[in-house]
Design a protein around this nucleic acid. Sequence first.
DNA 1: AGTCTTTATCGTAATATTGCAATATTAAGT
DNA 2: ACTTAATATTGCAATATTACGATAAAGACT
Lengths: 109, 109
Amino acid sequence: MGATKTDHFTEKQNSIAKMIKALGHPARIAIVEYLMKVDDCICGDIVNELPLAQPTVSQHLKELKNAGLIKGNVEGNAICYCIDEKAIEKLQHYFTGISAKLKLKKNCC
Amino acid sequence: MGATKTDHFTEKQNSIAKMIKALGHPARIAIVEYLMKVDDCICGDIVNELPLAQPTVSQHLKELKNAGLIKGNVEGNAICYCIDEKAIEKLQHYFTGISAKLKLKKNCC
DNA sequence: AGTCTTTATCGTAATATTGCAATATTAAGT
DNA sequence: ACTTAATATTGCAATATTACGATAAAGACT
């Protein structure tokens, strides 16, 4: 085995898991945090910022993009990557929802 | 290679990535969502709820516990697993923080 | 056209994850 | 002590992820 059995779970569960999984790596957290504080978002700057080789960073960016967490814009020679605000909001709402429901519940442990 | 280079990132980045990663699997999302809506949280019920074999579920529970997302309480013969509210809140705050900062910024893409 | 710069892709090695059958462990009930 | 029930651990096969060197692709510049 080794492959996740996605077909046994709901669309929603798979979809949210995919987004969350994309952020489940320190390099990708670092990328998002960098994009958050910077005004122009050039790929090359990200490569310089991270302690990883250029192909590795490129791969991480691809995964973030694939999960819908960032968007890429061709800017002449370079590429400008930005956080997709809506995706982050989706995650925020997901956790806010869980938190709210937990507060209405008495936890047994 | 194949191993994440955690030593090149900050403690915070590694720590949040670890929590997020633990949720980045539909089975573990399903477990958390199940624990959220149910009043007693017996391991056996989770096994029955999920479309996975008992050892697999046990492993997922272990990962969630290891990441601090759930707590386990021995309840006689069975084990009661509950969501750790504080962990979820931490995640909620993390995403709320990003969202808030993004709103103060003009995104270029 | 040739060159430089920037980013992506390919190929591959190392490691991690997923999933399960078999087995072990632990506590309860008899 | 024996048996049953619930959960964990072990061992292993299949697959995925991470990382990077080498190379390709695409646009800018001369």
